[in-house]
Design a protein around this nucleic acid. Structure first.
Lengths: 241, 241
DNA sequence: AATTTGTCACTAACATGCTAGTATGTCAAT
DNA sequence: ATTGACATACTAGCATGTTAGTGACAAATT
């Protein structure tokens, strides 16, 4: 394995990672957050080479916090580190996207089953409110707001399991999925189908039917990976050779 | 949060982590592997304070690879790092054990469903062979060998999903579970019930019945967490206050 | 005796210097 | 034009020096 320059090697948009404010924690954590955002938003596209001295100067930190941030990003599967050679943003891979979808579905299914079996009145009210809000935003046509309510629904499910690390874990295993999702435009009919799928999940939760909730959630998440498949043909330069 | 010494603070068994041989990769990875083993086997028991200079001298490395190893162990939930104060092995917690069991079950269930739905002849033969071997070892009474075959069964299921990171992920989320399991003695009838549970899972896989495989796997794994519950009463000094 | 305060030892976090290994460009030989 | 040796300029990994924050403890104060 090696890091090779090429005429077509993509560049990082350095403007996107100018400062560390807006984040908290140690320098290393803030550097990680900044780089993570840059990678997820494609400001640092697949194949881009990450240079410690360059980033060090740009962010105004030494190489130590960068080293720690690189290590975490490598564990997340977002950066390839080649000893004594270099580091670059990982290419996308349909295999990895499907794997991320498999793992995410496993966790989301377990969460929705748990909630369907153990929900209380307070939780139900919060979920119903989310569904009403989603319905409202579908009518408004504000896509950004719609997607935020969509994500909040899934976050609520993990919150209501009572398991603290579960939400963090699902976010980590979904990183490849989330990154690829930044590349596809909203598709025809997606808002309507998402709304219908959430409604199906909710009606299973309302009924306390874990098996039905599982099936509805699986159907919902399978579509996410499916929508990403054409990307490998449309943007081959972003994918692993 | 703070790291406070106390008369009862447990000590690390330094003899258990003398050398780095037997592991490969960078120094940091080998140091991580050595410390992980020490924590999992209770050579570094919950509450033990990890001192970088001490470990640095003992292992013959500088503080850099130790820092990286600490960071990974902290991400695994096995070490608490308190900035500018110190680091100690985390205490056990029934909440975290249940959470680990929840996450592990979510992943194992997804794996066994996948295998039940997509198994091929070659995979079935490997699984049947594992079950025959487990039956044999149950009769032999060699507990260590029995448990290894048990674990191999679960590893095979993840391998047969074809998803490369899944096995690693389940190992990571199960760390708290595995550590606690080192503390309980084999219980009466456990070999027989484990064998019966594996047989139930296998018959569901054979039938290609994903729902039955899921139910059998859930039943199997619920017992693991259940067996650990009494530990909090028997060994309160190992648990979070 | 109880409480505050100052000091000192110790820590993680960070900065920086060093080393060994890798890619790349140059130039000589063919 | 092609190849191959070599010098050069990079890199990650590791060692070590520095800084600022924390806990422990004893002296000072109430």
């Amino acid at each position: 394995m090696s890091i090779q320059e090429a005429p077509t090697t993509p560049m990082i948009d350095m403007d996107a990672l100018s400062d560390l404010s807006g984040f908290q924690g140690t320098l290393a954590q803030r550097v990680y957050a900044v780089l993570l955002r840059a990678i997820m938003t494609m400001a640092a596209p697949p194949g881009a080479i990450l240079r410690k001295p360059e980033l060090s100067e740009r962010l105004g930190v030494s190489r130590s916090p960068l080293t720690e941030a690189f290590a975490r990003l490598s564990a997340d599967g977002l950066v390839d580190i080649v000893p004594q050679s270099g580091s670059r943003v990982t290419y996308l891979s349909l295999d990895e996207i499907y794997e991320a979808s498999f793992l995410r579905t496993a966790l989301e299914v377990a969460a929705v089953r748990h909630v369907a079996a153990h929900r209380d009145a307070h939780q139900m009210e919060a979920l119903e409110r989310n569904l009403r809000l989603l319905t409202f935003q579908a009518g408004e046509g504000d896509l950004q707001a719609f997607f935020e309510v969509d994500e909040a629904f899934h976050a609520l499910l993990f919150q209501f399991t009572g398991y603290k690390r579960a939400g963090t874990l699902v976010r980590t295993v979904s990183l490849q999925l989330t990154r690829a999702r930044h590349l596809i435009l909203p598709q025809e009919g997606r808002v309507e189908s998402t709304l219908a799928e959430h409604a199906a999940i909710m009606s299973a939760i309302r009924a306390g039917n874990a098996a039905a909730a599982q099936a509805a959630m699986e159907a919902h998440l399978d579509l996410v990976a499916e929508r990403l498949a054409p990307l490998a043909e449309e943007r081959p330069e972003l994918f692993r050779a």
